[in-house]
């Protein structure tokens, strides 16, 4: 029982520490990292033609990332089938 409480408390402590350290960095607390957001809000529809800006990002600006995100799912499926089926009938 005590082990479980340690396992719950340690991530909480790490989380609080991480937030404290993040607040010490001035660049993270002051809003100046808004260039990409403003750019996409202004010109996303004109450049890509998608009203849903999330779709505009993951199918146009960051298409390279989402292609291999699909590849990661394929590798996951292949790994699960390979581990579950020890027979030779899956190729």
């Amino acid at each position: 029982m005590s082990r479980r409480f340690v396992a719950i408390l340690v991530p909480f402590g790490l989380m609080i520490l991480f937030v404290r350290f993040a607040q010490l960095i001035p660049e993270l607390t002051t809003p100046q990292f808004t260039n990409a957001k403003d750019y996409i809000m202004e010109r996303g529809y004109a450049e890509t033609g998608a009203k849903n800006l999330v779709s505009a990002i993951y199918l146009d600006y960051r298409l390279f990332d989402s292609l291999f995100e699909a590849g990661i799912l394929l590798i996951t499926v292949v790994g699960i089938v390979f581990m579950a089926k020890s027979d030779e009938d899956v190729y």
Binding site: G49, A50, K51, N52, V54, S55, A56, Y58, L59
Partner: peptide, 8 residues
């Protein structure tokens, strides 16, 4: 409707 409304 993935490029018009939430979803995809």
């Amino acid at each position: 409707h993935g490029d018009l409304s939430p979803g995809g």
